[in-house]
């Protein structure tokens, strides 16, 4: 057979494209449900990780239901818009943060750890190569960090990617996001050895300067949109 003819080449290319497209569509279609379930389970693991709860080798679903019985959606004024737990879980923070502040619907996960309420907020920002995101949990005072979790899509291994290690995340524990005047100032991520004026700070990653700065900006912007919510401090109960 002459495989050099124009007609043969065109037909070959057309058939190949159709076959490959069908194959990929089929694979994607069959596996979609399982993948979505995995993504949701992974999100639950990430949220649990911000409470310093290890899910390794355990049923993350059960742990999630045990520790996080409630989740709400608030607006920028700190008013509760919805207390539907599943709806709050499914909020896409990246999408919300692209809207103007007044229109955003922000999720807050209310966890109960050893009888104490913890508030978990969603974080989203940019690293050097791609998005970074995470969760940060606060004690009942809505000021002191209880735990944090950061993840990235494509930061440099050994450098920026170190933000995903517990070593870095544990630095945030017990840091405060408000200053002495009770104003929100966030937590700074500074170059190791340097200091930040008037607010709590942690050491960034050596060699991962841009990613560290990305975390700094992410904390400022993401936690900043919850400022009014964080301002409402009640005695233990849920802010109304």
């Amino acid at each position: 057979m002459n495989t050099n003819k124009n007609s043969y080449t065109i037909i070959y290319a057309a058939v190949m494209v159709v076959v490959v497209a069908l194959l990929l569509a089929l694979v994607s279609g069959i596996l979609k449900e399982k993948q979505t379930a995995n993504v949701e389970l992974d999100k639950k693991k990430q949220i649990l990780s911000s409470l310093n709860i290890s899910t390794a080798g355990q049923d993350a679903e059960a742990l999630y239901n045990q520790y996080i019985p409630k989740a709400i959606i608030i607006n920028y004024r700190g008013e509760v818009i919805s207390d539907d737990r599943d709806k709050a879980f499914n909020v896409d923070i990246a999408k919300e943060m692209s809207k103007p502040l007044e229109k955003r619907e922000l999720p807050v996960y209310l966890a109960t750890v050893e009888g104490q309420t913890k508030y978990i907020l969603s974080l989203r920002g940019a690293g050097l190569w791609g998005p970074i995101w995470g969760y940060i949990s606060f004690n009942e005072d809505k000021n002191t960090v209880f735990g944090s979790y950061f993840m990235h899509a494509s930061e440099t291994p050994g450098l920026g990617a170190e933000i995903a290690t517990k070593h870095f995340q544990n630095e945030f524990i017990n840091k405060k996001i408000k200053n002495a005047e009770n104003k929100f100032v966030s937590i700074a991520v500074v170059k190791p050895g340097q200091q930040a004026e008037g607010k709590d700070y942690v050491d960034g990653i050596s060699g991962g300067t841009i990613t560290s700065h990305g975390v700094d900006v992410m904390l400022m912007k993401s936690i900043g949109q919850y400022e009014n919510f964080l301002g409402q401090v009640t005695d233990g109960g849920t802010a109304k």
Binding site: M16, V27, L31
Partner: peptide, 29 residues
């Protein structure tokens, strides 16, 4: 076909990688 062999190779590799990646996402997240 000789003239589009690199494209064919690329399509095969890309399809294979995508399928493997989809399976990993479903069964070894």
């Amino acid at each position: 076909p000789n003239r589009i062999r690199i494209i064919v190779q690329l399509v095969v590799v890309a399809a294979l990688v995508t399928v493997v990646s989809e399976f990993l996402k479903a069964f070894a997240y």
